[in-house]
């Protein structure tokens, strides 16, 4: 076998000659052609099936791939969720579990405080979503959303249950965002009732999650 050794113990694959390169190129071209024929036929016949059904979706081609364009919401939702076992982490010294209080609402938050070698680290969420947003992020968000929150508040009220819902479901870092929003609100408005601050903070977070969702959709 025509093999070359560049260093002891390293066996290199034989270099391709022009014929082999040509064959590979032809093979790749043919595979691409086959794919085009398949997709064109599939799209044509599938759209023929779908044509008279008046379903809220259609099959489309984008960048050479078939995609389903759904007009309505898809029948499932993917939620960013805190998927970790609080009970197991309670016994782990690398995690801190504490009860926090926002107005009349209490909740438990679990955070990693040391890495796996026991070295103290920045707080990292156990579900791997990464570090919390910086204070600057929140300040900027608050500036944008605070007046909006005030306007919303005159129109309707968000109850602590809504706060809980937002904390648990709506964003990958909801608890910390809410907590920081509360902090910032109470610092700037010392006379604010904690319940009212919770309500305002929830509105801010709700606005942020909506803005986040829209940004993701735009991207």
């Amino acid at each position: 076998m025509n093999a070359e050794r560049s260093s002891p113990g390293t066996l290199e694959a034989p270099r391709l000659n022009a014929a082999e390169k040509g064959l590979r190129l032809a093979r790749a071209e043919r595979t691409e052609k086959e794919g085009k024929v398949l997709r064109a036929t599939l799209m044509k016949s599938a759209n023929h099936v779908l044509k008279d059904l008046e379903l809220p979706f259609e099959l489309d081609e984008e960048d050479g791939a078939l995609e389903l364009e759904i007009e309505a919401d898809p029948p499932f939702s993917i939620k960013q969720y805190e998927g970790f076992d609080l009970e197991e982490l309670k016994a782990d010294p690398n995690f801190r579990t504490e009860t926090r209080r926002i107005g009349s609402l209490e909740y438990v938050v679990t955070e990693r405080i040391r890495d796996k070698h026991g070295v103290e680290s920045d707080v990292v969420r156990p579900d791997g979503h990464g570090a919390y947003p910086g204070k600057e992020d929140l300040d900027a968000a608050l500036q944008r959303n605070f007046f909006l929150a005030q306007r919303w508040f005159t129109q309707d009220r968000i109850f602590p249950e809504d706060v809980a819902l937002i904390m648990h479901h709506h964003h990958s870092k909801p608890k910390e965002w809410l907590w920081r929003a509360m902090d910032a609100l109470l610092a700037s408005h010392p006379d604010l009732e904690p319940d009212l601050a919770a309500t305002w903070a929830a509105k801010v977070i709700k606005g942020l999650t909506e803005a986040h969702r829209q940004r993701r959709e735009t991207l």
Binding site: R15, N17, E20, L23, A26, R30, T31, E34
Partner: peptide, 25 residues
């Protein structure tokens, strides 16, 4: 059908190149 066409095309290329392809081995 297209796959079969590919096979024929590739077979033709292989036989045309013949010995060249076997050189590295």
């Amino acid at each position: 059908k297209e796959h079969e066409r590919s096979r024929i095309v590739l077979d033709k290329i292989k036989s045309k190149m013949g010995g060249e392809l076997a050189k590295p081995f």
